[in-house]
């Protein structure tokens, strides 16, 4: 299945070339590359969460990603200043902030995982319900307005500062992606997850604990979302409940573009990262061209449909001998 990988590399190269042709060589300059790299992690992390849940099959999907990210940022921004002063010890502040985000993500993920695995809710309904509940909680906590963090040096550095030319948050994203990729590929957890997604019945007879597997998968997904929440807070130094309303769509678009099978059982993290990068370049190209947000939504929707169509063709040729196997 390396076709998907080649295809995505080609897409990346094409978008880069098109962008340079349209927007000029500034596009490939170090400054613009860095500013794009800063924006990839949040979407990429949400997409990795969606990918993990999609691989688990049986309609698995996580629609609550951005809600968890915003809630994590908001809870941290409201509670951490109560314990630690940002002026006195900015470094501790940043670490406790991150820990608070992760704690919220863990809690939200456990709730999602419980609903999907134990209460056997359909993933769509469970994560739709929790995404409303988490968003609602964010609204209640902030009364609907944004919370400003002010300038906190370590946080701001994390969001923007490049080390050896690579922005810190992008480096963290790549490290996390590599870890998830390795876990999926080499660990028993990954093998079981793919197995559950490709054939739930066979997985049941294999005798491993499916409830725990789903629990871990949804918890991981929310944990990644909360890391995204931390990065958002660090990058724009404020948090609001309605940040990134179209991120649910974009995260799904990234996973579909990456060739993750919506019915479960197949998906590669390398492809997800490449797909996120391609989308970010496209988005930056739109920025250079001064294209409105409304048209951008239009383009994202259209792209999603086109990639569903393209991946459908691939599947049919791959499974030409057994046309029913893919469905």
């Amino acid at each position: 299945m390396d076709r998907q990988l080649n295809f995505l590399v080609a897409v990346n190269a094409l978008v880069l070339l098109a962008a340079v042709a349209i927007a000029g060589t500034d596009f490939a300059g170090i400054y613009n590359l860095q500013s794009m790299a800063v924006q990839v992690p949040e979407l990429g992390l949400l997409a990795i969460g969606v990918t993990l849940t999609m691989i688990s099959g049986n309609g698995g999907i996580d629609l609550s990603g951005i809600a968890v990210a915003n809630l994590a940022g908001i809870v941290a921004a409201l509670t951490v200043p109560l314990w630690i002063s940002a002026d006195d010890s900015p470094m501790t502040y940043a670490f406790v902030f991150a820990a608070a985000c992760l704690a919220v993500g863990l809690l939200c993920g456990l709730v999602n995982g419980f609903l999907v695995s134990r209460a056997s809710l359909t993933p769509i309904i469970a994560t739709l319900g929790t995404s409303l509940a988490y968003t609602g909680l964010s609204v209640v906590l902030t009364n609907g307005s944004g919370v400003r963090l002010g300038y906190i040096e370590p946080l701001d550095n994390f969001g923007h500062m490049p080390i050896l030319g690579i922005p810190m948050c992008f480096a963290v994203f790549i490290v996390l992606a590599v870890i998830v990729g390795c876990v999926l590929r080499f660990s028993p957890f990954g093998m079981r997850l793919y197995m559950l997604g490709s054939n739930a019945k066979a997985a049941r007879f294999a005798g491993f604990n499916q409830i725990r597997l789903l629990m871990v998968t949804y918890t991981l997904s929310s944990l990644f979302a909360s890391v995204a929440g931390f990065i958002i807070a660090a990058r724009i130094s404020s948090v609001k409940w309605d940040y990134g309303t179209s991120y649910v769509l974009i995260a799904i678009l990234i996973t579909v573009m990456a060739g993750v099978r919506p019915s479960g059982g197949y998906g590669k993290i390398t492809c997800v990262v490449l797909s996120a990068v391609a989308l970010q370049m496209l988005s930056s190209m739109f920025n250079f061209l001064n294209i409105s947000n409304f048209f951008r939504d239009f383009a994202w929707g259209l792209l999603l449909l086109i990639f569903l169509w393209v991946s459908g063709i691939d599947l049919r040729t791959l499974f030409a001998l057994r046309p029913r196997a893919g469905s």
Partner: peptide, 13 residues
């Protein structure tokens, strides 16, 4: 779900 999220954005966009 995925198809209609796509059409939703196409139509609204």
């Amino acid at each position: 779900l995925i198809v209609t999220i796509g059409t939703q954005y196409v139509i609204r966009g």
